[in-house]
Simulated assay, not measured.
Amino acid sequence: MAIHEKRFLKNYESKASEYLNDKEKASNLLKKAMKKADKKAIGDVWENLQLLFQIFGDWTSGKYRTIPVKSILMIIGGILYFVSPIDAITDFIPVAGLLDDATIIGLVFRQVSSDLTLYKEWKQKEFLQE
């Protein structure tokens, strides 16, 4: 893991804890991230973001809580990083800023992949029950 990625994990996970018990703050973050993703997300990052947004939204609403706190903190941290206009490489620098965000989203996705697999299975069962 690169030094930049370690810094991300430490800084954004600590910020993410502010969203654990504040449903309104969490919902506002999700809305802001979805708005930015509509304008900025590229390639397979779009699909990864959508899945992270879905699990975060279901977790915030209380529908899905079967995820370790460390994983949801990492997801929130990744979303915070994505939303932040000033991170390791500012989003105002064309392409490089987006690649930086994509790298972090990819890192989060890899770190919580087993939790995302369980979430997708849960989501499929929920869909079949409706």
Rank of each mutant, 00 (worst) to 15 (best):
108 V>F: 02
85 P>D: 09
31 K>C: 05
25 K>F: 06
109 F>C: 00
23 K>L: 07
2 A>L: 14
86 I>C: 04
43 G>W: 00
84 S>V: 07
4 H>Q: 11
27 S>N: 09
13 E>F: 13
22 D>R: 07
23 K>T: 11
36 K>V: 14
66 T>F: 02
31 K>I: 13
77 G>Q: 02
16 A>I: 05
85 P>M: 07
105 I>M: 04
113 S>Q: 10
66 T>S: 07
129 Q>E: 13
20 L>Y: 03
54 Q>W: 07
51 L>F: 00
61 S>F: 00
100 D>V: 02
9 L>A: 09
107 L>T: 08
83 V>E: 01
49 L>Y: 02
120 K>E: 14
105 I>H: 02
130 E>W: 08
5 E>G: 10
35 K>F: 13
16 A>F: 06
117 T>W: 08
18 E>T: 07
57 G>E: 02
125 K>T: 14
101 D>A: 09
18 E>H: 11
123 K>V: 04
69 V>T: 11
81 Y>L: 02
111 Q>A: 13
82 F>S: 00
12 Y>W: 06
114 S>C: 00
104 I>W: 01
65 R>G: 05
117 T>L: 13
86 I>E: 04
94 P>H: 01
49 L>I: 07
130 E>I: 08
51 L>C: 05
101 D>C: 06
86 I>L: 12
107 L>C: 08
44 D>M: 08
85 P>I: 08
46 W>D: 15
123 K>I: 06
87 D>F: 10
83 V>P: 01
129 Q>H: 09
91 D>V: 10
9 L>E: 07
76 I>K: 03
130 E>L: 14
118 L>T: 15
98 L>P: 00
40 K>N: 11
129 Q>K: 12
102 A>K: 00
94 P>K: 00
